[in-house]
Simulated scan of single mutants.
Amino acid sequence: MKIDEKLVDEVAMLARLKISDKKTFIKEMQKIVDYFQILEEVDTSELEPMYTPIENATKLRDNKVRNFEDVESIRKNFPNRDRNYLKIPGIHK
């Protein structure tokens, strides 16, 4: 796969990136793609697929509803409150 300026522009637009030095970026991306092409040449036909690197299954806790008794201790950590509501800074301008 050849990395060109058109592909870089498309990826930058989709990822919302501003790339100041496109030539350096193209060189670095081409190195990465070339490396993956080398990996594609490795013969893995005799290997069994590996679905997870973790051999032991993780024990999950029981999915039970529990009431948290000390809600007021959490509320004390918030500097801005209005009765039972916590005030936080807005995320929209």
Rank of each mutant, 00 (worst) to 15 (best):
R75T: 02
M13Y: 12
K18A: 13
A15N: 10
M29P: 03
R61F: 11
E48P: 00
M50E: 13
K27S: 15
I74K: 04
E46H: 03
T52M: 09
F25P: 04
E69K: 15
P89Y: 04
I19K: 12
I88D: 07
Y51S: 00
F36M: 11
K64A: 11
T52P: 02
N63I: 14
A15C: 13
Y35E: 13
K76H: 01
I19L: 13
I88Y: 13
G90F: 09
Q30H: 01
K2H: 08
F68P: 00
T58E: 15
D9W: 02
F78W: 03
E46V: 00
T44W: 07
E40F: 05
K31T: 12
K23E: 14
P53Y: 00
E55N: 12
F36A: 04
D4S: 05
M50K: 11
F78D: 04
S20C: 01
E10D: 14
R75F: 09
N63R: 01
P49W: 08
M29S: 07
T24W: 06
K76Y: 03
E46N: 10
K27I: 14
Q30D: 06
F68H: 11
P53D: 08
T24Y: 00
K23L: 07
I26Y: 06
D34H: 00
M50F: 01
F25W: 11
K18C: 09
R83D: 14
L17D: 04
E5K: 15
V33R: 02
S20A: 09
E10M: 11
F25D: 04
Y35P: 02
R81V: 04
V33W: 03
